[in-house]
Structure formats: C-alpha cells, structure tokens
Design a binder for these strands. Structure first.
Length: 586
RNA sequence: GGCCCGGUAGUUCAGCAGGUUAGAAUGUCGGCUUGUCAGGCCGAAGGUCGCGGGUUCGAAUCCCGUCCGGGCCGCCA
C-alpha cells in the first residue's frame, strides 16, 4: 500500500527501528503533548498508528519554543530524522523510535475537544453523538468501521465468487400497508402522491428471479418507521439475497458456509456446525424464537407433574414451567425479590414461585406444602438440577409463561455471569408456523410475509387447520440475536391465491397492493427463496458490541433523531408549497 | 403509547432522611520542570444543580408537569 503523498513520506504507524537515520515527513493529529522543561513530546496520530515526535531546546531553541504552542488535536506536519529512543515504549508498535523534529508546520488548529479522544473517552453517549466525527476519531470507533469495511468487502467477494450478482433496486417505491410503517417521500410532480422508502427489496428480488438472474445479492439500506432499540435503527443495512431452483436446505447450507467463512476469515473463529432447531423446541426450551445457546439452563414443562394436588393456580393453568437456577440456593432474598419485580414488570405474569434446595427445601409460598418434598425434588431432577440449586416455577398460558421464563433466563444469566464471552453459537430456527391468528381483526396473518411457502406436507391441512401449517422459513440466530431471516417463496399461483384467501385478502385487494407482482408470478416463476442479513447486527455481534450504533458511522439516537444534524427538521414554506403539503399541528 | 434509569463545573461523577460559602477527579488557564509516554509539581479560574410550577421560613434535595438522553414492553409482515 502506498501511503506517500505530497504531505508525508510515511504514516504514523509504519516506522520501526530499521528506519533509524531516515529523513521523514509525517502528518497527523497531535493526540497528546507533553511539555517538560526543555523538551516537548508530541504523540502524532493517524489511523495507522502513533509516532512520537521530540523537540529539544538544546537542538533548536526557536523550534522548541514554537512546539510549545502545539495543542491537542492540532493537525501538524513534521519533518525530521528517525532515531532510536532513549526510553522505549513497548506498548506501541512504533515505540522503539521517535522523530527528532527538524521543522514542523501547524496545518490546522483545533478547538479544545469536548471529550477526550482516546481509546477510553470520558464523553457520555449524547455528547459523543453530537460530535460524532470526533468520536469516530477514537481508536475503537476506527476499528469498528474498518472491520465493517472488511466484512462488506468479504461479503461482496464471497457472494460474487459463488455466482451471486449484485443488482440494485430503487429507493423510491410504493407504500404498502403491511409490515412496518413506511417512511414516505412526497411527490412534487404528483400532488397528494407519495413514494415510500423500501422496508426491504423483498418483491424486487423475487422479480429478479422471475427475470432469470438466478442468484442475486445486494448490500442495501432499508427503512422502517418504527420505534428504536439497541439493535434497531430506522435505516439499517441488509445483505439481501435470493436464489432460484432451491429449497430450504440449499439456502441454509449456502449461508451457513458464508457465515462460517466470515468468522474464520475475519475473526479466525471456527463456528460449530449450525444446529437446525424447530421453532417449537426453541420456545419450549428457551422461551424465545431466538435462543442464546451459549449456556444451558433450559425451561422444563412440568404441567403434568403439578396437577391434581388441589392447588388452583396449577390445576387451572394451561401450562406450568420450571426454570433451574444453578447455585440458586445461595441467592439472597433481595435478589429474588428483584427478579420477581423484574419479571412482573416486563411480562405481566400471574404467579411467580421459587424453591431453593440447600440442606433442605425452602420455598417462597406454599409450593412444598402442596406438592410434598418428594415431588419437588423430582421437579429439580427433571430440570437437571439438585442440592445447591433453585427452581423458578410459573403457571399460566403456554406462550406467555414460556416467554416470561425465557426472559428471566437471559436476565438471570446476565446477572450471574453465566454467559461465556468470546464465544459464538449460531443456529437456524426452522419450522415456524406459517400463520398466526389476529384476535382483533379476526383473520390469519403471515408470520413472515404473505409469499412464504408452506411445507408441502402441510398443504393438505391449510383449509382444516391453518394454525398448524409450518412454513419454509428460517431464522439465523447467533448468541441470541436474530441475524438473518428468510424463506422459500410460493411460485404457484393457485397456492398464492389460497394464502391470500386465508389472510382475508380479496382478489381485488391483493391486486391493488401487489398487482404488478401477482401479474409477474404468471409468467414463469422459478421455485426460489432467499435470506436477508441484518448487516449492522452481524457486524456488531462479531465485534462484541452491545448496540448497532457502535458500528454505524452516523446513527440515529434512541428517539430517531440525528443529534449531529439535528434532523428531522421543519422545511421552508416554499418547499412545502412546492410539494403541495400543509402541516396539521398535532 | 406504557414502564424503568439518568440529567449538578468543559467532561465524568459525588452530594439528595430540606439548613453555613454545592464538592472530587479530569480538562482548561498561568508558572516551574530535559526523557516523557494517562508526564510531574505549584497556583487560578470555572455552576441558571435540564426547564417550569408547587410545598416550605428555607429546595440541587420533597411533589406535579415538561424537555432531553439511555434500557425495556408495545410496535418491528
């Protein structure tokens, strides 16, 4: 790599002892200036590293006096000789040498930065967001964005080599009422009409398959106007893929290889083969459709074991589940109260019981009295725990209880430090139900999207028992984070019509919404399917970052604002007029 | 839309069972210091305690409202 320019002969990261004696020119930011009487040290930083520059009164009195004026984050250019240090710094790669400055120039001064621009900053999140460009000057942020670049390049190369074509799709498209709320762009040429920004290029990539491109990918920005989370931004990046003439296994195998290769190539980490876990198993054992399988502690169904003891809560509940807590007998009462308070706050569960087993069984509530010690010990046994441990028991509707236990499982594991760091566990969750029943609107809804194919074996029960139909859909989960999701699509028109019927979409409505697409389906649609990765999430998880904001150069904050730009913002009367828009104050 | 946490010096925080002049660290500014690398030492400046209202003789501290930031639930086909 050639880094030599009109301003420099070397970067701040490349000089070593072997370069001693060379006359060099460096540019960079003065990261730290140490003024001692008679000698000035400047740590000169650029994205390649840090090189120490020295000014000495004895060498050049004037130059030394001028150097005292250098301040933090000034951009300076230094000319001088590389020499071996008197006191070496083993902590940095260039620590054996320094630049004996012969001359220097301040190219650009800096105001005092609002926070320390170092590995560990003292700045809070909102301040760093406002001065994002300064935060990005910090080594951790530089590393993150450089890693993101490498993952992008890796993805492009890997997919291209496998025959995928990078094809682009439009950003100004049509709003559809399904799914997430659309971001919308007013049309100047068509008063009262709006474009929408894509939530994903879903239908376009299917059209590419109909066009015969066979393998498509795109690293593409998607837009969803929903509330934010640590792992959710209103605009985010997908690795969007689609393949023709494939079934589930083909897609999963291809992208298992992709992810494994990415981890190997970028992190030198060997992922274990990805488990394929049915949705039902994920829910029953982990209480979620995105299980974190890095640690044990599995939910156990004890419904049958606790019925018939005359305890109303158990006898009348659809489901009773148990969650083991290893070493739970030494947990303080305060901690238990905290967990109970936590789960009641986030999950709205009716009953929360726990039993600890130290020398003897102890319970909060009447559990032992009702079930008897023997039965309780059997429950421990069934949950694969015993003396020294504890058991949490909750009763109620299956889905509610199982998710509450799953939420607690994660919460407790975090607080007890049971989750191994520096470990990655990837799996595919499969066999999702195709549809779920919408109580309020009284019709079936697609769990994934309305073009997802059902499993062939379940097609016969589409009419009789739609809730039991499984989809050819799959989610890739790493460390409990949903990283990718996809499905095999319907390529058969009558099947597609049947699904629309189930969803309560009339022919007219369906045509109004996806007319172009339904039309396209009639011109020779190949069997096809695909997957889309949350690229920001993948990057974040590979880097061990808690939020995707850390891997996005200029993210929105929690309230969906850009605190640096101060956007969104009002526009002028003229702009509004041109767009034929009148503001209705809320 | 709901719940939780936070907002005090440039910055990160302490102070908050109401009571003297609101503190620390760090940064900033000034001085001294020739081998530092989170340089050291001495000194100084620096505050609308987010904002508005209320309770009180008295509010950073208690109450209500509001704004801002973060986490979660809802939402995210």
């Amino acid at each position: 790599m050639n880094t030599q320019t009109a301003y420099r002969t070397h970067t701040c990261g490349e000089l070593r002892l072997k370069d001693a004696g060379k006359h060099v020119k460096l540019v960079g930011w003065a990261r730290r200036v140490r003024v001692l009487g008679g000698v000035v040290f400047v740590d000169l930083w650029d994205r390649y590293g840090i090189t120490q520059v020295v000014f000495n009164q004895q060498w050049d009195k004037d130059l030394y006096e001028q150097a005292r004026e250098i301040d933090r984050e000034f951009v300076i250019q230094v000319e001088g000789e590389v020499r071996e240090r008197e006191n070496k710094n083993p902590n940095i790669p260039t620590g054996d040498i320094e630049i004996k400055a012969a001359s220097f120039k301040i190219l650009s001064k800096s105001k005092v930065p609002p926070f320390i621009i170092e590995e560990h900053t003292d700045g809070g999140e909102d301040l760093r967001a406002k001065y994002r460009y300064l935060d990005l000057r910090r080594p951790p942020m530089q590393r993150n964005l450089i890693f993101r670049h490498r993952l992008l390049q890796f993805t492009r190369n890997w997919l291209s080599e496998k025959g995928f074509l990078e094809l682009e799709t439009p950003f100004l498209i049509k709003s559809t009422p399904e799914g997430a709320r659309d971001f919308v762009v007013p049309s100047r040429l068509y008063p009262g009409h709006f474009f929408a920004l894509p939530q994903s290029p879903q239908l376009f990539k299917q059209l590419f398959m109909i066009s015969g491109f066979d393998k498509y990918f795109q690293i593409v920005r998607c837009f969803r106007d929903e509330d934010l989370r640590a792992d959710r931004q209103p605009e985010f990046t997908q690795i969007d893929c689609e393949m023709s003439f494939v079934d589930q296994q083909d897609v999963m195998n291809t992208f298992e290889q992709f992810v494994a290769d990415a981890f190997k190539s970028l992190l030198d980490y060997e992922l274990e083969p990805f488990e394929r876990m049915p949705y039902e198993e994920a829910m029953n054992k982990y209480g979620t459709d995105k299980p974190d399988t890095r640690f044990g502690i599995l939910i156990t169904d004890i419904t049958k074991d606790v019925k018939g003891f005359g305890f109303k809560v158990f006898d009348t509940s659809e489901y009773v589940g148990a969650l083991p807590v290893p070493d739970g007998s030494s947990i303080t009462r305060k901690m238990w109260d905290h967990w109970e308070e936590y789960i009641k706050r986030v999950a709205d569960v009716p009953g929360f019981f726990y039993v600890t087993w130290k020398d003897e069984l102890k319970a909060k509530g009447p559990i032992i009295k009702i079930l008897g010690e023997e039965t309780v010990k059997e429950l421990f046994n069934k949950s694969k725990v015993g003396p020294g441990d504890a058991l949490i028991i909750m009763a109620g509707p299956w889905e509610k209880i199982v998710s509450a236990l799953g939420t607690l499982r994660l919460h407790i594991a975090k607080e007890l430090n049971l989750i191994p760091k520096d470990r990655f566990k990837a799996l595919f969750v499969v066999d999702f139900p195709l549809l779920s029943w919408n109580e309020e609107e009284n019709h079936w809804e697609p769990n994934h999207h309305p073009f997802t194919a059902p499993k062939e074996s379940d097609i016969p029960i589409l009419d009789t028992n739609p809730g039991k139909v499984k989809a050819k859909a799959y989610d890739l989960v790493i460390n409990g984070v949903e990283i990718a999701g996809g499905s095999i699509r319907i390529h058969n028109q009558s099947l597609q019509q049947k699904i629309f019927d189930l969803l309560g979409l009339s022919k007219e409505e369906a045509y109004q919404k996806f007319g172009f697409f339904l039309e396209a389906l009639q011109y020779g649609t190949p069997p096809h399917g695909g997957i889309a990765f949350g690229f920001d999430r993948l990057t974040a998880i590979m880097l061990g970052e808690e939020t995707i904001r850390s891997v996005i150069a200029f993210p929105k904050n929690k309230s969906g604002r850009d605190p640096m730009l101060d956007a969104p913002a009002p526009i002028s009367e003229e702009q509004l007029k041109e767009l034929h828009i009148k503001i209705i104050e809320p």
